[in-house]
Simulated scan of single mutants.
Amino acid sequence: MSETGSINYWAVLGLDPGADASSLKRAFRQQARRWHPDLNGDDPHAEEQFKAVNEAYAVLSDPQRRQQWEAGLDEAAAAAAGLDPFATGFPDFEDYLDDVFHRETRRSAQYDSEEEPYQEDPPGDVTPPVPPPPPPVVASEELESVVDLTPEQALQGVRIELELPDGTAIEVWTPAMAGDGWRLRLAGVAPGGRDHFLQLRVRTDDGLRIDGLRVHYQLELSPAEGALGCTAVVPTLDGPVQLRIPPGSSSGRLLRLRARGLSRFDQRGDQLVEIRLVVPQGLTEAEEALYRRLQQLAEEIDGGRDRAVNQ
């Protein structure tokens, strides 16, 4: 441990003096990952820098030790008599974070997400309740399984129990704020050392798709409703609402319902409504005649535009 007063702990973590607890945690996690010896095998300075990062966080996150350091006192002697916490080696990075943040270990299988999970520490020491886990999943194929999650489970992360075709049992935690369609790669767990994938499905019975804090919904309309505009009833997580569809709405147009998504801490997502025009099947003779007339009108309009351009 460095001699007290010889190192600027704020500078070690890349912070301005007096940064809040949330910024301190984020900076510590970033610097610890950057300098962890297991992740920097070719850097001879990583071990000492990692120890400095650990020391800086230990002092700045403890009000008493931080006060002693700021006063220039010998906090090293007052805390653990200068013992080196890494004298017997360096733990796995995730286990190391679990121990520092006093959180329950979340992994017995590592995954690589094909989406970048959003992660942010809660303000202060507030820990949201963990939703109940979904029932055990039996792999539908040797290399991929589909896992259904509720919006709450996807938002907070949940423990998944997976049984592979060869009887191997795996436990894995999904990332917080996961979304519908995410694929998580479980490296080397399938027979022969192959990867197994978890595809997350986060949907409600009324057709809402969840992606982080945002909610997606596909609204089917007739061509006439899209052309002329209408009012449609749209489901949301808080119940159905009426949405005004502007005239001239084509397939693919997105309409936003603000603050109708999921909430996490002080953030609230939106709901996006995608317009999809659907042509009815089994047209009556009258409907077919109307569509043919519309087609003729469109051709006449396009022809008039072409003549105007050529003049």
Rank of each mutant, 00 (worst) to 15 (best):
E220Y: 13
G226N: 09
L73D: 10
Y96M: 09
Y118Q: 11
R264E: 12
T231Q: 12
A11E: 15
V202N: 00
P135Y: 03
S22E: 14
L228P: 08
E144V: 00
P240M: 02
V273P: 04
A232R: 11
P131F: 01
A27G: 08
L184S: 03
Q267L: 14
L277Y: 06
V100Q: 08
S263W: 05
A71T: 03
D95W: 09
P136W: 02
L13H: 08
E75H: 09
R107T: 15
A71H: 02
P134F: 00
L24D: 09
P44Q: 03
P151E: 02
L213K: 10
A32R: 06
H216P: 13
W10M: 07
E47D: 09
D20H: 09
G41L: 11
V234Q: 05
D98L: 06
Q296E: 15
A286N: 13
D99W: 12
E104K: 14
G124E: 07
P135Q: 06
H196P: 02
P44C: 04
A52L: 03
S108P: 06
L208A: 07
G226E: 09
P129L: 05
Q311K: 08
L15P: 09
L272F: 14
L272H: 10
E288M: 10
M177A: 12
P175E: 03
P129N: 06
V273K: 02
L294C: 13
A71L: 01
F50Y: 11
R106I: 12
V172P: 02
A76M: 04
F101E: 15
D180E: 06
S6Q: 14
A76F: 00
L39V: 11
E288G: 14
A19E: 08
P247C: 05
Q49N: 11
D95C: 08
L73P: 01
A80H: 10
L255N: 08
Q67K: 03
D42I: 06
V130G: 04
E171L: 03
P123L: 04
G41N: 08
R276F: 04
E75S: 05
F265V: 13
S61R: 00
Q31A: 13
A286R: 14
P280W: 05
R26P: 07
R159G: 10
A187F: 04
N8H: 11
G282C: 04
A178E: 02
Q218W: 14
R29F: 10
Q156K: 08
L186F: 01
V309M: 13
G248C: 03
E114M: 04
Q281P: 06
T4G: 14
H102R: 15
T168M: 02
K51C: 03
W173E: 10
S6T: 15
L243R: 01
V234A: 04
D43A: 06
Y118A: 14
S2W: 09
L208Q: 05
H196N: 05
E300Q: 15
G303A: 15
A176P: 07
I210C: 07
R34I: 07
Q271M: 12
L294E: 15
Q153W: 01
P17D: 09
E55V: 00
Q67D: 08
I275M: 09
L213D: 11
R107W: 12
R256P: 08
G179E: 01
H102F: 11
D74L: 00
H196Y: 03
A190C: 01
L294F: 12
L184N: 07
R253W: 06
L73V: 02
L213E: 11
D180K: 02
Q110G: 13
A58M: 02
